[in-house]
């Protein structure tokens, strides 16, 4: 593999990054090659020691996705960051995917339950095939809807915190998890 082939491969893997970020990383690797050559190291040795371009790129991508998700805190951003971190290896797949899937399912469950409470008067009137129950049991209905709304608002607030926690966990994973 030549220097240009290595850099081209790296560029391919870095495609999801914004152009400026890509250019920055490539410039740094070019500098590495130039300085290594200047110090009399052979290209083969330099390339062997740099490590697989795919791994280098994955590392940069995962860090970028986590950083980006931290700025906007959206579900799609968090999911992208989780996927990028998982792609670093099988081990990461387990320690990242399982907690994320389980906690996301739990959160979705809370949202589902809140919505269920909010629409429960409608469901009850369908079940009883009359809307009389709404007036007869007005306070119960109001209580159910109120509890649903409170839970929903709480869940929305918690979601932001949850995204933040996931990103913290990913950052922690990036620091300690296996690379090869």
């Amino acid at each position: 593999m030549s220097k240009e082939v290595y850099l081209n491969e790296l560029i391919q893997y870095l495609k999801p990054l914004p152009p400026a970020e890509q250019a920055d990383i490539i410039a740094e690797f070019r500098e590495h090659f130039e300085l290594a050559e200047f110090n009399g190291r052979s290209k083969e040795e330099v390339i062997a020691k740099l490590g697989n371009p795919r791994l280098v790129a994955r590392e940069a991508l995962a860090q970028y996705q986590i950083r980006k998700a931290g700025k906007s805190l959206s579900l799609s951003g968090v999911i992208k960051a989780v996927i990028a971190t998982m792609s670093l290896g099988l081990f990461n797949l387990i320690i990242v995917l399982l907690p994320f899937a389980a906690s996301l399912a739990l959160l979705a469950g809370v949202f589902g339950f809140a919505l269920f409470l909010i629409v429960s008067p409608i469901l009850l009137s369908i079940q009883h095939q009359s809307i009389m129950i709404l007036t007869n049991e007005f306070f119960l209905m109001a209580g159910l809807v109120g509890a649903g709304l409170l839970l929903f608002i709480g869940a929305v607030k918690f979601t932001r915190l949850y995204y933040d926690l996931v990103l913290r966990y990913l950052r922690y994973c990036l620091k300690v998890i296996k690379r090869k």
């Binding site: 920055d24 690797f29 590495h32 740099l50 791994l55 280098v56 590392e59 860090q63």
Partner: peptide, 20 residues
């Protein structure tokens, strides 16, 4: 890498992260 063996390419993403 004088002290211990590393995949040298991974130092650069690390430096970028610390700078960020």
């Amino acid at each position: 890498s004088q002290k211990f063996e590393i995949a040298e390419g991974t130092i650069y993403p690390l430096l970028r992260r610390l700078a960020a």
